[in-house]
Design a protein around this nucleic acid. Sequence first.
DNA 1: CCCGACCGACCGACTGGTCGGTATGATGAA
DNA 2: TTCATCATACCGACCAGTCGGTCGGTCGGG
Lengths: 200, 200
Amino acid sequence: MKTRPTARDRIMEAAEVVFAEKGYHDTAMDEIVRRTDMSKGGLYFHFPSKERLFFAVMDHLGNRLAERINASIAQESDAIARLEIALTTVLESLGKRRRLAKLLLVQGYSMGNAFEKKRIETYSRFASLIKDNLDLAVEEGSIPPIDTEIVSHLWVGAVNEVLIRWLYTGKPAPVKEALPVLKKILLRGVGVEAKVSIGG
Amino acid sequence: MKTRPTARDRIMEAAEVVFAEKGYHDTAMDEIVRRTDMSKGGLYFHFPSKERLFFAVMDHLGNRLAERINASIAQESDAIARLEIALTTVLESLGKRRRLAKLLLVQGYSMGNAFEKKRIETYSRFASLIKDNLDLAVEEGSIPPIDTEIVSHLWVGAVNEVLIRWLYTGKPAPVKEALPVLKKILLRGVGVEAKVSIGG
DNA sequence: CCCGACCGACCGACTGGTCGGTATGATGAA
DNA sequence: TTCATCATACCGACCAGTCGGTCGGTCGGG
């Protein structure tokens, strides 16, 4: 089905690069246009506004990440293993794509209040993915009952911050190095006893 | 000892309100001026630029929070108790000052990349506060050895996200309700066995 | 000859920062 | 006491650059 990328896709690719580098406000539509083989009018034929273009890019990236997580999760049946592999997937995926990480985790905010809704949407989505598996783990009896709603956000926040620190300071290099600690602390936090882990 | 607040302070107060409400980029200097009994020229006599004004406000708030934490921490000697009370103080302080929380945690992002440095600075400060006490706890033997560098950022991220979720969705109301869960999960994560906690 | 896709010069709203000017009070010489 | 002088604090109309978005027009295929 895929021939040459559609104009829409080409625009989004260019937008992704510039938005990630400069953030929302410091990005001029003219710059995105410059990176495209298209004119401003042409771009505006495909996207009605800067805001919508930005959202489209964010959605796209969010979807890709979510898909990757879901794919990796699907290979495991027990909840704890799923949680572990989800953490791994996020750290690996974003760890090897600095630009995407920055856009997804940081630049999104740069819109100001208009972004509030999207940010809730995006983060909640990943939080509920975690929540589902925490709930499952509780049902399975692998971990004691907890407030999975809050804990899932706690996890998202924890991972988010570790990634942001890496984005800004470069430490740890590579981020993946933080994975064992992250797993150990988060899992122990919900009551999983230490054990020999499977993946590095 | 309180006379009339200095012009500088009056400007910062006005700025705080507007920045918190609209975020950096969507705030016009003219609006801050409007909220002051001062003219634009007068404002620019005290602050050289919008950016500097914003940073001044952020620093001020950061300091206040840090002071409050330090004061509460000083009352405890054992490291675990300090960590607990630090968590409590943050949740309470920001929980009862939504506006400040929003400004401190969210609104800076709309500055774009200029905010990077300040964000590292601010978050690292709180992270190392946590790190110090985690290190202490390890020394004391209250918890097993861990990578306190990463874990401290994990904590900051966790608390940050819980607060942001509250800012955006209002849940839990009040945020303080998340405190027991936060304490329990984070402390258990670093290896503190469950016990009867003192504070609610 | 119509229409979707695209072009790019242009518009106008907005905003950070400036600058010539003013009010007030301190200083100090006559 | 008085008045010239000067610095500080403050005023607000104005400017110049920026940028999202528009619109009249082009063009090729069906």
